[in-house]
Design a protein around this nucleic acid. Structure first.
Lengths: 234, 234
DNA sequence: CCTTTTGGTCTGATGGTCTGACCATAGCTC
DNA sequence: GAGCTATGGTCAGACCATCAGACCAAAAGG
């Protein structure tokens, strides 16, 4: 029988973790370039740590080029440290993410059509009813919509597994930079419009109990967004 | 726009993490009741920590009832601290785990049938060819088999998502206790036998490039094992 | 019975983190 | 332009977690 051997314990200091989380937020666009960083004392409260830990984390971000000092304030750097990410890499990433979504989300919708409570259906419909043409708001709505579907499927593990895939999508700096790129502005607005329509179609089918229609709508939705991402964004 | 707010940083001491990992290994059967715990100095090296950290972790396990002192040695307790876990809870857990597997694994096999390299197909076939009637060895083989399939699907994110679901299965103490229970011994041997046959059928169809057959085989395999788990194990 | 191995205990040191205070400068408002 | 507020910068002292190393007693094994 195989002898059990344990892996070494990983160490992550408090300030290292804060630096990583702030860097992630910057890379994914949650903290957009040029926007002010929250003041140290506010970050202390949110993270639940001492000011020295936050200061050390921000110091590291300044050194790495993610954050700049402007007067007595800190702001997110306009030019982030670059990673080499080719167009083909980008398309491969998108294809990979959507391939996983195509596996999981039809199953989620099918289960949700059968299991969702009236309250869950109402929540899904409410979220689908939102309109915006702002990318950041739409991303939040998009995430909430698909998360609400996943919660309604009645399988906590499937929900958790889906959340992982979704976090890869929404946590990807490369993916976010694709969406936020100025050159893609017109196309992104179109994606927002067609996605909002698709969300409504999915919610409508769900509320009416039309399982096949709901499943077909989500497959078409994912297919459409993926095609737009791969073929039309630069 | 929604203001970004960070969650507090979670703290986990070195000894707490070691205690948790040792407790997990005990609960999942990787460290069976009655077996000696590795010596402190060995665990120090494996975890990469000081003896004091390991000692504190083991002290906690002794207090909690997972580990007992026998002379100058430590052994895994014969009677583990019980969690209240009813038959219905157990069946719900199994159903949930297999529902997720039924979503992901047919898709994995379909992609693997198209994308697997000759080497990957050979690996899958080799693992499927193994025979044992020992539960622990079979669990390891089972895990390796499904992991090899996932790696061969050519989508790192799908592989990662599947690994998460699989780790829930193999990391579940309740699940393991079900398998290791003396009362289920005969039925478990039967599950091992039919699973080994199913693995061979899947690998055989994969090697021959019979995509539909491979997918059908994995669906039937998961269905069969789930039924045996839910209906026949106590 | 002797040797080896293991758990038990202790000391001193280091790095990480905290709390609290105070100061200088930039930003904002009137 | 002045005054106030808010923010980053710096500092001191304290505590906690963890480490390395050493030594001892008792159990296990040959």
């Amino acid at each position: 029988m195989t002898k059990l051997v344990f892996d070494p314990v990983a160490r992550l200091t408090v300030s290292a973790e804060i630096r990583q989380r702030l860097a992630d937020a910057i890379q994914t666009g949650q903290l957009a370039p040029g926007t002010p960083l929250a003041p140290e004392r506010v970050l202390c409260q949110e993270f639940g740590v001492a000011r020295t830990s936050v200061r050390e984390a921000i110091q590291g971000l300044i050194i790495a080029g993610y954050v700049e000092r402007r007067g007595n304030r800190c702001v997110v750097a306009e030019q982030l440290p670059q990673v080499n990410f080719t167009g083909d890499d980008r398309k491969a990433l998108v294809a990979q993410l959507f391939e996983v979504r195509q596996v999981i989300e039809p199953a989620i919708v099918e289960l949700a059509a059968r299991r969702a409570t009236d309250e869950e259906r109402a929540t899904i419909t409410d979220i689908a009813a939102r309109t915006t043409d702002k990318l950041e708001e739409f991303r939040e709505t998009d995430r909430q919509f698909h998360s609400a579907l996943a919660r309604a499927c009645g399988n906590p593990l499937l929900n958790e597994v889906h959340a992982k895939a979704l976090s890869k999508l929404f946590g990807s700096g490369e993916f976010a930079s694709l969406l936020y790129a100025e050159v893609n502005r017109v196309e992104v607005i179109d994606i927002i419009r067609t996605s909002t329509e698709a969300h409504r179609a999915i919610a409508d089918a769900l509320v009416k109990g039309h399982t096949r229609k709901a499943v077909a709508a989500v497959i078409a939705h994912l297919d459409d967004v993926e095609r737009r991402m791969v073929e039309r964004l630069l």
